[in-house]
Design a protein around this nucleic acid. Structure first.
Lengths: 195, 195
DNA sequence: ATAATGACATACCGACCGGTCGGTATGAGA
DNA sequence: TCTCATACCGACCGGTCGGTATGTCATTAT
């Protein structure tokens, strides 16, 4: 019974290394050997805990989706104006540890590595988690008259795109402060750029 | 002397296939053999014209950057309000053949495959081509009082991010018409989403 | 006429990768 | 203490990939 904990610790170590490596290198460039050595186990241990490379990758996403889903739901369920709720959601996202933030962009990069429709759907679900949260807030904002009627899906993607682009290396150094980034996105989204 | 034309034709065929393959598969998953067979030559021909896989990839970007740079400059140099010029630039981009549009997103995906700083800079230059064009238009708009003063770099990235997201598969089917996409981005960027 | 060059084809190498498998160490339960 | 499942090791395999060495043939220069 206590061995389950040991197993979970190993699995956790493997997934932590996987997160780091998959973020810095492309999917194909991350070898099972490098994952093993990074987690201080052998390849045999990897295949003991995971059916294969793809399953390991998906397990990584699944673990992350669970924790993020919990975090995001709090922002969506929170009361307040659409702007306040979007601000909270975005702040929660931007103040996440760097690697956890980057994961959600990783999936956009690796979107077409799985040809199996079931796995592709898993990836898609993960990818749409944040836009869906934004979308429901925007929908409420439209109903409340706070936002003008528009295509909710597209508006969500536009909003998320602006948030994500602040994580791009090229945007770093431009605005270092989270609050500044946050306000820039919110101002642009609500009031636009016109003078 | 006439053989140069034959060479160029072969090179062009190789780069065309490379564009298609690199867009549908990840960098590592595109093999030199598949590039060769797709271009109806052998691997020997590839290594005759290109020093290696990386050089081939960079040549692909370089060829595309030249043609896009020409196109974009026309929009930047055009007269009119910032909104008109951004509209033209965006329209030029959105009406590009599908594969040429997608190339600029491809680079964002493969940003971290080259560890050599020289090559990484080439990638970065390619990646910043469109944002730079947008940036200079925005700058003019601010000077003309058409746009409120703001961080030009970040605003450019926000604008480009919104344009690019309309190319995402998940945005397809939402707004099929180029004009509709264009207007949605411009409206959001200038006027915001507030009621 | 012949040497030289450019544009390929063919055959092959070494490295590496995902995955397998027989075996071992460990620790819980009877 | 015996049993047995689980966690893990390490050698190995088939296959693929980037890259190279060498040959062939048409064209061009001398």
């Amino acid at each position: 019974m206590m061995l389950e904990t040991r197993s979970q610790a190993t699995i956790s170590r493997i997934l932590d290394v996987a997160r780091t490596l998959f973020l810095t290198k492309s999917y194909a460039d991350v070898s099972m050997a490098s994952l093993a050595s990074g987690a201080d186990v052998t390849k045999g241990a990897l295949y003991h805990h995971f059916a294969g490379k793809e399953e390991l990758y998906l397990a990584l996403l699944h673990r992350d989706l669970k924790s993020k889903g919990l975090l995001f739901r709090q922002s969506v369920d929170a009361p307040g104006t659409a702007r306040e709720r979007l601000a909270r959601l975005t702040r929660d996202f931007l103040t996440l540890p760097r690697e956890e933030r980057a994961l959600i962009r990783l999936v956009r990069r690796d979107i077409n590595i799985f040809h199996d429709p079931v796995r592709a759907n898993l990836i898609a679900a993960y990818q749409q988690a944040l836009p869906n949260c934004v979308g429901s807030i925007i929908e409420d904002g439209i109903k409340a008259g706070e936002l003008r009627p528009q295509d909710t899906r597209l508006a969500s993607w536009h909003f998320v795109a602006m948030v994500e682009v602040t994580l791009t290396p090229y945007a770093n150094g431009v605005l270092g402060d989270v609050n500044a980034k946050l306000n820039h996105v919110l101002d642009l989204f609500f009031r636009g750029s016109a003078a």
